[in-house]
Amino acid sequence: MINALLFNDTSYEKHHGSQLVVRQIYALAKEAGIAISRACPMRHDWRKNEQLKEDIRRADLCLINGEGTLHDDAPQALMLGELASYCRQHGVPCFLINSVWQRNEQLLAHAGDFAGIYLRDEFSQHELAAHGVACKVVPDLTLSYSHQPAAREQRAGYLVSDSVFSTRTLEAWAEVCRANRADISFLSIKNLPIIQAGKGFPDYCIKSVAKLLQAGRALLQSYFMRYPAALPSEQIGMLRWRYSALGLTRFLRRLSTSSGVVTGRFHCVTLCFVTRTPFYAIGSNTHKIQALLLEAGLPGRIQESYGAALAAREEMAFSAADRQHLEAFLLDCQRRAKDMFAEIVERARAFK
């Protein structure tokens, strides 16, 4: 097995999408012959950890899970870019995978130091190509997950999910309240944090237990609060806990038994793909949703507002052509994800 370190482990996030991404990274890496010995949490500053720097120098390769981090020259993005340069300086191949790339200027200085770049969408690829940096497109790794639905599940009702933007989440909740229908309900992508054991950072294991207990208290508290249509912004966190579906199986079942979903969350869109659930999407903080829909052959599913999306919900169902595009795209996503890890192994072995 090839020894690897993983950086920007987003499973520390309290939502289904990022937790599933990391789950898939581990599964696909293992299948390709890569053993991840340490997984560095998101926002952990590798530059201040001397033991980690030594581990980097000894590793066969480093993987950076970019997800939605690498845009607008964010401090976290630049820190990960510096990691690629550090790896190259010490003869360790560093691969950027599962990443957006948008509106970066300072980060470009580090782009050439990656041994390989695999971005989630063609828009990101075009931004790097404009600066002469070659990369490949492998869609978000949640799309490599093979969902096995319960036998002949019946679909009914519509779900409205939140957004990364607070104002959009308040809009979503207000529209659910305004509709006041039993067949329209709110669902957040939030999930309890995972206990981070066996990832090479004992202190984060302890922190994750504390985080889980804190989240459990918030979840319990959320059931004793009122949520008016004109919701104060400080209550958004509690709203998300109150209308969460804990556990990936339960969340996917909520999607797969609904007639359709309106969401501003990228990973809610990808999980609608996985469960073959019709949806309308509201734009997010990068081009990630628009780019995904264009590549999948489903470009007409962006709506300007939650109200407009709900008003058009009867037109949300997939056509026969939509279903064909979706099935072909999902098969291609699974193939590309496996090919990416196989190629990483091949490049790492040839690197030195």
Rank of each mutant, 00 (worst) to 15 (best):
Phe201Gly: 05
Leu212Tyr: 14
Met225Glu: 15
Val209Phe: 11
Gln235Leu: 10
Met238Trp: 08
Ala230Arg: 13
Ile236Met: 10
Gly216Arg: 13
Leu219Ser: 01
Phe201Pro: 05
Arg226Thr: 08
Gly237Met: 09
Leu231Arg: 05
Lys199Ser: 03
Lys211Gly: 11
Ala210Thr: 06
Ile236Gln: 00
Pro228Gly: 02
Cys205Trp: 10
Gly200Asp: 08
Gln235Ile: 03
Ala215Gln: 00
Cys205Glu: 09
Tyr227Met: 00
Ala215Arg: 00
Leu239Ala: 10
Gly237Thr: 11
Tyr223Asp: 11
Gln214Val: 04
Ala229Gly: 08
Ser208Ala: 02
Gly198Leu: 00
Asp203Ser: 04
Ala230Ser: 12
Lys199Tyr: 09
Tyr223Thr: 10
Gly200Val: 09
Arg217Ile: 08
Tyr227Cys: 04
Ile206Lys: 15
Leu213Ile: 12
Ser222His: 01
Ala215Asp: 08
Ser222Pro: 02
Leu212Cys: 00
Gln214Gly: 10
Met238Thr: 01
Ser222Glu: 01
Ala230Asn: 14
Ser233Trp: 09
Lys199Asp: 09
Phe201Trp: 08
Ala230Glu: 14
Gln214Cys: 03
Arg217Lys: 13
Phe224Ser: 00
Ser222Ile: 08
Tyr227Glu: 05
Ala197Val: 12
Ser208Asn: 12
Leu239Phe: 03
Phe201Arg: 08
Gly237Val: 07
Gly200Asn: 08
Gly200Ser: 06
Cys205Gln: 13
Arg217Thr: 01
Arg226Gln: 13
Pro202Trp: 04
Leu220Ala: 15
Tyr227Thr: 03
Leu239Pro: 04
Ala218His: 15
Ala218Phe: 14
Met238Asp: 15
Leu220Gln: 10
Ile206Gln: 12
Gln221His: 00
Arg217Ser: 03
